[in-house]
Structure formats: C-alpha cells, structure tokens
C-alpha cells in the first residue's frame, strides 16, 4: 500500500493516480494528515479501553479519497474556513441586551483551545451533560441577553466550527465517568439499539461493517472528531446532531431531535469512542 503524507498543495494530485489503484479496497488508508504543514493530526490510534469492538480507531478522514483528504490539509483549500471566518467576526460582535460579545468574557478565541476536545461535558451547576451548542446558548441567553440560536442553524454550527478550529490537533478527551456516566450509558444504549424499518443500529454500520461499501460509499467508524464537517454532498457545514438525524432517518425511523437529551447522550458516547483522535473540525467529508 502506498503511504502519502497529505500536507496540502499540488503534490497530492500527483500522488492520486497510484492511490486510486487501491480504490476497490474500502477500508481506511495509511495516509497521514498535517494541516497547514503545521498541525499533525492523529487520525489512527489505539482504541480506548471502553471500546470493545476494535483495537484501532480511525478518523473518517482515512476513508476518504485523496482529493477529499487534500481539501482538509490546507485552511485555504478547506471551504469550511469561510464560515469559521464569519464566526470569528461574530465572536467579537456585541449582541443582546447586555451588549456583550463572546470576546467580552472569553477574550481572544485562541483562549478556547482545548474546550471542544472535552465536550460534551458535565455541568455541575446545571446538573446535566452539556454539548458545546448548549453552552453557547447558555452564554447567549444568560450572559448576553440575546436570543438563543437554532441548535443546528448556521450561526450555531459556524461558532462550533470556530471553537473546534482552535482545538485542532488536540486529542479528543471526553469524560465518561463520575456524574457523566449515566448519560454515557444512555448514549451507549442508543448506539446499540436497532431503529427504523431497516432495524439498524449505529453499530451495525460503523462497528460491524466499517471498511465495507454501502452502495457506492465507504463506511467509516462513524467517528465525530471532525465535526462540524463540510460535506461535498451539500456544500455546507454540518452539525453532528444533523448527521445523527440523517443516519437514523436513513434507517427509516422517526428520529430524535437535534439538541434532544437522547442525541446529547449519543454525542457523548460517540465522542468517547474517539478519545485519542485529534479534534479535526471543521473537517471535509463526502
């Protein structure tokens, strides 16, 4: 198998021809991701102890074609960064009755490095596990006096992408014990529950069949370290709960709602299956 280090730029295209000879193999490749010739991403590592199904975990990046992989290797080539830049402006723009911006409390967005890596996270005051989206809306409503954003709306997803972008390269490390444990257990239960007319659980595709083709596409391990993700399919940033909704819809089931307790629990569980992979958001996927 050819091994290519994808660092952006034109050398990738030259490597494409040889890699495509292997296209019939649908499993993860051995390419390595370095973003902006600077951020070394862990896209393959030992599975955490609480994942029984496999020994090695792979970022969804490993399952994509060389062309799609290359789009993520350079921030200029990554269309998602258009929306990250928009969110960076919003970060510094006052809103709501308190006339505060995000930066009024949090200063430069770089100060948020590491935050995305540990979310979803138990919030002691609220007595619940919170996603980054929930925390952002808590800031908006209670500190800024502003309207909350729609859970998977553009403003929200852009902001989550901005926060992810400053954590890129840091290992996903969500806590699954202590007060978060019952939520994590609930998420695990959902992960292994078959839904819909097709009676498919998350595990049926992403655990039992990763590396196989589903119609014309490669099934990954369903890791979410790359969210929010720019999809070639709809040419926009996609939130993780929107992806969950799409997956469950594809089983021909009534889905849970983005932001619902079920999806928060599922996000914690699925995130924990990627503990050790780098935060990649905003990534580029098919």
């Amino acid at each position: 198998m050819t091994k290519t280090t994808v660092t952006g730029g034109r050398l990738i295209i030259a490597a494409a021809a040889s890699a495509f000879a292997l296209a019939a193999y649908a499993g993860p490749d051995e390419d390595e991701l370095v973003v902006n010739e600077d951020i070394e991403m862990v896209t393959k590592t030992d599975a955490p102890d609480h994942v029984d199904a496999f020994d090695t975990i792979y970022s969804g990046w490993r399952f994509r074609s060389d062309e799609t992989q290359a789009l993520q290797a350079d921030d200029f080539d990554n269309p998602a960064m258009l929306w990250v830049e928009q969110a960076a402006e919003v970060w510094n723009t006052a809103a709501g009755s308190e006339e505060k911006s995000c930066s009024s409390c949090h200063n430069d967005v770089d100060s948020m490095a590491g935050v995305k890596a540990v979310y979803p996270k138990w919030n002691e005051d609220a007595g619940e596990v919170r996603t980054l989206e929930m925390q952002i809306n808590d800031c908006r409503e209670n500190r800024m006096g502003a309207e909350p954003w729609k859970y998977t709306g553009g403003d929200m997803t852009n902001m989550v992408a901005l926060l992810a972008s400053v954590s890129r390269g840091m290992p996903v490390n969500v806590a699954i014990d202590g007060p978060a444990q019952s939520t994590w257990e609930q998420g695990k239960e959902i992960y292994y529950t078959r839904y819909g007319q097709l009676e498919l659980s998350c595990a049926n595709c992403h655990e039992d069949n990763y590396g196989n083709m589903i119609r014309a596409d490669h099934l990954s391990q369903g890791q979410i370290n790359g969210f929010p993700t720019y999809r070639l399919k709809n040419t926009k940033l996609n939130a993780v709960h929107a992806r969950f909704k799409g997956c469950i819809r594809d089983t021909r089931a009534h889905t849970f709602s983005p932001g619902s307790p079920e999806f928060v629990a599922l996000e914690l569980y699925v995130a924990s299956r990627g503990n050790g992979l780098s935060v990649e958001g905003p990534s580029v996927r098919n």
Partner: peptide, 16 residues
C-alpha cells in the same frame, strides 16, 4: 489534464 479517475462526489471534482 489531471482529473481523478473516480470522483467521490460529483459536486466538487478537482481538475488541473
């Protein structure tokens, strides 16, 4: 003309 032999998605096919 450089184009992928297989395009993962027809929406965005890189060519040179």
């Amino acid at each position: 003309l450089t184009a992928p032999e297989i395009a993962e998605n027809g929406n965005t096919v890189p060519i040179e």
